[in-house]
């Protein structure tokens, strides 16, 4: 199961390359599907996805930890509710509204993506930490480990599988949503599709959609790999 996705993605991509090299394309198509352009768009797409994912983890994990400690515990349902709202809002609307409010460009797109992708990681961090057997926490405290030490050495390692499942979900959400970044001039593979639509070139639309799908599959696979690699031994 772990070998199949990259092989499949590789095969389909090879098919795309063969088609691109042999197909009879008009001048608009061949300029839009020039390899440097394709690579630039893929790279932009990956950049948007990963920068947003890193920020999501950097924000959601500490926030999730804070929401399972002390008095803040009570605020957890409220914050999860807000994050839920962020995800329920239509992504296009979020992207465009933010751009109107802030500015067009890369960082606005990243901000929109972060708002959109924060929920699964936040929710899974909270669920994962809440799922740690309380007697283990008490055993750690009872042995004289400090609260921070119990968190770092017991709670977080045990919650890692659940948190990483959230990260994988977020990655998949982000790689799809990053297609909308083109509307505010932040590039990405969405650009290929919108160009295809405005210039009535079917080949561009299909190429863009295909490449986004392949990228999403690959990133989902990477997420699963990450999940397996970060899973602590023994559990």
């Amino acid at each position: 199961m772990l070998v199949l996705p990259p092989v499949l993605v590789g095969l389909v991509f090879a098919g795309f390359v063969v088609w691109r090299q042999t197909a009879d394309l008009d001048s608009v198509e061949s300029s839009q599907l020039a390899w440097p352009t394709i690579w630039r768009l893929i790279l932009q797409h990956v950049e948007l996805t990963f920068v947003a994912a890193l920020l999501v983890v950097a924000l959601a994990v500490p926030l999730g930890i804070a929401l399972t400690r002390g008095q803040l515990r009570r605020a957890a349902p409220l914050v999860v509710g807000i994050a839920n709202g962020g995800q329920a809002a239509p992504a296009v609307g979020l992207v465009v509204l933010l751009a109107l409010w802030l500015d067009f460009g890369f960082w606005t797109a990243v901000l929109a993506l972060v708002l959109y992708g924060i929920l699964p990681v936040l929710r899974n961090t909270i669920t994962g930490l809440q799922g740690v057997d309380p007697t283990l926490v008490e055993a750690g405290r009872g042995m004289g480990m400090s609260a921070a030490s119990v968190l770092l050495r017991i709670e977080l390692p045990l919650a890692v599988p659940v948190i990483m499942a959230g990260v994988r979900t977020a990655l998949v959400l982000l790689v799809g949503t990053a297609s909308l970044a083109t509307f505010i001039g932040a590039g990405g593979l969405g650009e290929m599709i919108t160009t295809g639509i405005s210039l009535f070139r079917f080949s561009l639309m299909v190429s863009g959609a295909l490449l986004i799908a392949l990228l999403a599959l690959l990133i989902e696979w990477l997420g699963r790999l990450l999940e397996l690699l970060t899973r602590p031994k023994g559990i």
């Binding site: 057997d133 007697t135 283990l136 008490e138 055993a139 750690g140 017991i154 390692p157 045990l158 602590p232 031994k233 023994g234 559990i235």
Partner: peptide, 8 residues
């Protein structure tokens, strides 16, 4: 009870 060993 049960030892409560840390599984990881």
């Amino acid at each position: 009870q049960g030892g409560s060993l840390f599984p990881h």
